[in-house]
């Protein structure tokens, strides 16, 4: 990078490297890819060895709930992406509202997940339950992976909501503003990753009957 003072640097008088910040965020996202990637490989191998059981177990999952949650996450990805455009245009209030909507949608996703898990637990399907331990080996693996992977994903949704809440607070205080919004961009990147992981979880668990 050149050390030539740019307009933005001259105004703020602080060293800033937005490209570096974003690259750092992407590197972090790659560690998340490896984390979930490992689980996807486990899923693939178990599925390969227990095709029939995975088939049967997947029928337990409610396709409609999964589809609704997919639409919720895709929409939330759009609103957080739009909040960057709003911030670039200097429409602070609108930008904050869009981040707010994203957080609300994330909450709706979790609420759905809560009822979905609750329904399954009511039916006696949860790790180590007598019901589950009587299932064929392959189905135990399926539900184990279901709880692990959607659970880890839900944890990421909670973390994403927290990150976006912090971003929103910094927007209201002006720390994130029209000329310096890389934190909003990084927060949004994290949220999109949560969306991308769900894009793969959804067909693998809900659709492959």
């Amino acid at each position: 990078m050149s050390t030539q003072p740019t307009a933005a640097n001259a105004v703020s008088h602080v060293h800033r490297d937005d490209t570096g910040s974003k690259l750092g965020m992407w590197l972090f996202l790659f560690t998340e890819l490896i984390l979930f990637g490992g689980l996807f490989i486990i899923y693939a191998v178990y599925r390969f060895n227990n095709g029939e059981a995975f088939h049967l177990a997947a029928k337990e999952l409610d396709r409609l709930v999964g589809t609704v949650n997919t639409i919720i996450l895709l929409t939330s990805s759009m609103t957080v992406a739009m909040s960057i455009t709003a911030m670039q245009e200097g429409r602070k209030k609108f930008s904050m509202a869009l981040v707010g909507i994203t957080i609300v949608l994330a909450g709706a996703f979790l609420l759905n997940k809560y009822f979905e898990w609750g329904h399954k637990i009511e039916k006696g399907i949860y790790p180590k339950s007598p019901e589950m331990m009587n299932m064929p080996h392959g189905e135990i693996l399926y539900f184990g992976l279901y709880y692990t992977m959607t659970g880890l994903h839900a944890l990421h949704v909670i973390i994403g909501m927290t990150v976006l809440a912090v971003v929103m607070r910094q927007m209201s205080r002006g720390v994130i503003n029209k000329d310096s919004y890389v934190r909003l961009e990084s927060g949004a990147l994290y949220w999109h990753l949560v969306d991308v992981i769900w894009i793969f979880l959804f067909p693998l668990f809900y659709l492959l009957h």
């Binding site: 990078m1 740019t6 937005d18 960057i84 455009t85 670039q88």
Partner: peptide
């Protein structure tokens, strides 16, 4: 590495484009 100023790098994606991708 070429020297971009912060202002030069900004690419604003329109709301319409995001909406189309969402569709």
């Amino acid at each position: 590495m070429s020297d971009h100023s912060h202002a030069e790098k900004v690419h604003i994606v329109s709301y319409g484009q995001y909406f189309l991708i969402w569709l």
